[in-house]
Design a protein around this nucleic acid. Structure first.
Lengths: 333, 333
DNA sequence: ATGAAAGCGCTAACAC
DNA sequence: GTGTTAGCGCTTTCAT
């Protein structure tokens, strides 16, 4: 048996292979009657274009890879959704690679260990160092997404972490809060989200003449909900006095919010709560969470469009795109 | 320039092309010294296997498509994660297709309109009819995932919706609840999740000698959080008396839970709340949500492994796999 | 354990 | 508008 080929379709339709190829590639100048004969032949033979053959011949795959630590986390799920939509709009398919935030897996992608199977790579790495990134031997375009700003060979799409955290902290200060529990602090590595968001927090406090208090800085810790809840429970147990919580991501903030409610603390009257990410759920809690919208759609769109540009034109200089988060004020702060 | 090919690597390593091919395909009988020369040549030339060429030559792509209505919804995000993991374990890549639950897009996939670009399709369709599915002209294996049981040409992986809803309703009845608000009811189409879960609910009530009350059946409505909240608000406004809420998915249940809290109704003391899906968040609310775990991991694993089986062996009879949901009892009911 | 040669099914250049 | 031809870079017999 064996599936029908273009040659078969050409024969049945009584035209040349090239015309069939034209048909499938959207070439406009095909006579309506020819077109009809082609369509009939395609239906008769149940012909399916062999994309592998096209790929080999054209040197492109029409596919990009999206690599990220995980999919199930709301932030990444929403990002993946936006990336896939943006890619679909451009006729690109998306292969999703899950790295578990494992440096080896991230490196493997930058080394192209699986061979050349996509036209480009969108990589949200979390474990790679600047040197790792510089050492890439990949021969297709790469666009990095993430928090650590890596100026270097690749395009980079990131979020204004410092400014975002600064704005949110200012909002809390303006509403009269002075003892703001910061969840997710980690100053060990300079360019992580944890360090950058802390920097914004610290800057706002300094500007307002409010001192940094060690007992209000919680971290390093994993940025998930359980830890957010635990941190708040802990602070209360230890008798730490605070009138606001700023979770450096929504998961931490939502965990904190839940724990405060469990303890009967009124939000925002007694304690205000703010997050960072604007995941869908943030709008749906009670009270809904005040947070920072990083502009996920914009990030995805920019990352995909930049990759698409590189697919078309080589030798573009690396570009840095910084999305500016927008404060989304809801009832929690 | 042009990237290096196997022939180049063969030349530099001083072996034949076939040996290079063997090397990349995990053929074990290659002398260590040969292997070393190959590796040196690969590094020197920065050679990347051309997967398109391999695909054309071998007639396989090593890639499957996962098509679903959306990614950002927690249920689908978690399913996608599990599918990608299961596929990675088998050395398969996953292309994610988003259909928006649009029948035309779902049909396009079953018609193979994009040509042959994957070895198989995992389709979580929500709009397709049995006829649509029967009309598929796709020439690669298809495994359907979903709520509507479609016995037919394709393998089908689903959840025991009736039994699950029955068990949960029994649990509520056993804890003394008699007026159970059912969220998401829709009896219009026989084999939808809405109809099946309702059937389980009704069966449990009947068995317990509790009558169906029209004012306790809410739907049809979209199965999201806002609707869950609205349904509860509505019921309370209208003075409907209920001592439990069974949301036919977690989104509805979580919306209901939030609304009850907003209104100061104690959960589960005054009203118990139960859901269906066991999304991650269900464990993290306050109180944590009692729900049904459909066994997402198992579903994903089964769907992928069935597809992998079909990739290897043709002419397997279609199989129906029904995951039995497990009650996860938490504090809300 | 390795080599030689024949395709896989398409695209792209160019001709008409 | 349509046809001809020469590859794209592998895998796969079949030999050795």
């Amino acid at each position: 048996m064996g599936a029908a080929t273009m040659a078969d379709v050409a024969r049945v339709a009584g035209v040349s292979k090239k015309t069939i190829s034209n048909y499938f590639n959207g070439y406009p100048y095909i006579r309506p009657e020819t077109r009809a004969r082609i369509e009939a032949a395609v239906a008769e033979l149940n012909y399916k274009l062999n994309v592998s053959a096209r790929n080999l011949s054209s040197g492109r795959t029409g596919t990009i890879a999206l690599a990220m630590p995980e999919i199930a986390h709301p932030y990444f799920a929403e990002l993946a959704q936006s990336v896939v939509s943006a890619a679909q709009r451009r006729g690109l398919n998306v292969v999703v690679e899950v790295t578990d935030g494992d440096r080896e897996r991230e490196l493997a992608l930058l080394r192209g260990e699986n061979g050349r199977y996509v036209d480009g790579l969108l990589l949200h790495a979390i474990a790679l160092t600047a040197d790792d990134i510089a050492s890439s031997t990949l021969d297709v375009p790469v666009v990095l997404i993430g928090d650590r700003v890596h100026e270097g060979r690749f395009d980079f799409v990131t979020v204004a972490n410092v400014d975002g955290a600064y704005e949110m902290t200012r909002l809390l200060l303006q509403s009269g809060r002075r003892r703001i529990l910061a969840l997710g602090v980690d100053r060990a590595e300079a360019d992580t989200a944890a360090a950058l968001r802390f920097a914004g927090y610290a800057r706002a406090l300094a500007e307002a003449g409010v001192g940094l208090a060690d007992d209000l800085l919680v971290g390093p810790l994993p940025w998930n909900r359980a830890e957010g809840a635990r941190a708040v429970a802990d602070a209360r147990e230890r008798g730490v006095d605070f009138d606001a919580v700023f979770g450096f991501n929504d998961a931490l903030a939502l965990g904190a919010l839940g724990e405060l409610q469990r303890r009967g603390v009124r939000v925002p009257d007694e304690v205000a709560v703010a997050g960072f990410d604007d995941v869908q759920e943030a709008a749906l809690t009670f009270p809904p969470l005040t947070t920072l919208d990083p502009g996920r759609e914009g990030i995805a769109e920019r990352a995909v469009s930049r990759l698409a540009e590189r697919l078309a034109a080589y030798d573009l200089p690396p570009e840095l795109f910084v999305a500016v988060p927008r404060v989304v004020r809801r009832a929690s702060a």
